[in-house]
């Protein structure tokens, strides 16, 4: 593997890790507040469709992004209604949301565009364009560092940089602000928050809404930056990989970055090489596809340190009698 190939794989890693990172941070906010969310997949899918559809119709990727976030927020509202207001089972609600998105996107896409459940291909202003960072061109010829700067660091869409910036921002918001303190408290012991005179419901809805916004960006990234338009089931399990990454990351923002980069790397490898020959042993591509899931099971089994979820996670808050 030469240097250029390594760079290309890493570049592809960053692209593929971005939606995972956004969705992972989305899940992080929700689960830190005590709301389990296995509906990341569905929210991303709905956002991918709406962003592509609106971008295709309006020609503006920014309108598309907004629409995508809107669609994701709508599903978040359903999840909030079910798991916060009506104290239903958060897992079941998440499952329902995934199917709702899987079904509705195709039904609406077919009715709207008549292209077998896809949106028209996005061109020009309908997509996010790569951004060349300052001096990327002129530094390109500096040995080693030049190509790294030009090929790997520069040349991504704005959403990639946004996702990476969100990591320190999330950390700061969670651990250095009043909002973060309350958010983490409500995921650990909602009764403590309630008796301190702060609304449990309000905080949890806020967390679920942040989750919706981030999933919306993740979905929009898939359809308008990574690819050029929506196709049926285009999230392809990314919501679940993000969930796996969240566990891997033990519900911490910086770890989330590493976990999603790792999973993005695995996807990049699987995408580039069909079967990998490791000195006589051929690793089939299907194994690479399954590796994130296998790693998560290993983590869950507690062989690589224990992942302790927020204590009140998954439990609707009911004032005890």
């Amino acid at each position: 593997m030469d240097f250029l190939t390594v760079l290309q794989v890493l570049d592809s890693t960053v692209r593929l890790a971005t939606p995972l990172l956004l969705a992972c941070l989305a899940g992080l906010f929700s689960e830190r507040a005590g709301i389990f969310d296995i509906g990341l997949e569905g929210k991303m899918l709905a956002a991918a469709f709406m962003s592509a559809a609106i971008a295709a119709v309006s020609g503006s990727v920014w309108l598309g992004l907004l629409a995508g976030i809107g669609a994701s927020l709508l599903l978040s509202a359903i999840h909030g209604l079910a798991s916060i207001t009506f104290r239903g089972n958060q897992l079941i609600s998440g499952v329902a949301i995934n199917f709702l998105a899987a079904g509705l996107t195709v039904v609406v896409a077919q009715d709207w565009f008549q292209q077998g459940g896809r949106t028209p291909s996005l061109i020009g202003g309908g997509r996010f364009a790569p951004i060349d960072l300052p001096l990327a061109k002129s530094l390109q010829d500096v040995p080693v560092l030049g190509p790294i700067y030009h090929d790997l660091i520069s040349g991504h869409t704005i959403l990639v940089y946004l996702a990476i910036a969100l990591v320190p921002l999330s950390w700061w918001a969670l651990f250095r602000t009043r909002f973060g303190l309350r958010l983490r408290a409500v995921g650990e012991n909602p009764a403590a928050v309630d008796t301190a005179g702060v609304s449990v419901i309000g905080l949890r809805y806020a967390a679920v809404a942040i989750c919706g916004v981030l999933c919306g960006i993740a979905g929009a990234y898939l359809a308008t930056a990574l690819q050029a338009g929506f196709v049926k089931d285009m999230t392809a399990g990314r919501g679940y990989i993000a969930l796996a990454a969240l566990i891997f990351a033990k519900w911490r923002p910086w770890y989330a970055l590493s976990a999603t980069l790792l999973f993005g790397f695995l996807q990049a490898i699987a995408l580039r090489y069909q079967n990998i020959d490791l000195g006589g042993i051929v690793v089939p591509v299907q194994f690479m596809d399954a590796l994130p899931y296998i790693l998560t099971v290993v983590i869950l089994a507690g062989f690589v340190g224990k992942a302790i979820p927020p204590r009140a996670g998954g439990e609707p808050y009911v004032k005890e009698r």
Binding site: F86, I92, S93, V95, A96, F99
Partner: peptide, 8 residues
């Protein structure tokens, strides 16, 4: 699923 499960 939503109505019989989560929104019971």
């Amino acid at each position: 699923i939503l109505f019989t499960g989560a929104l019971d």
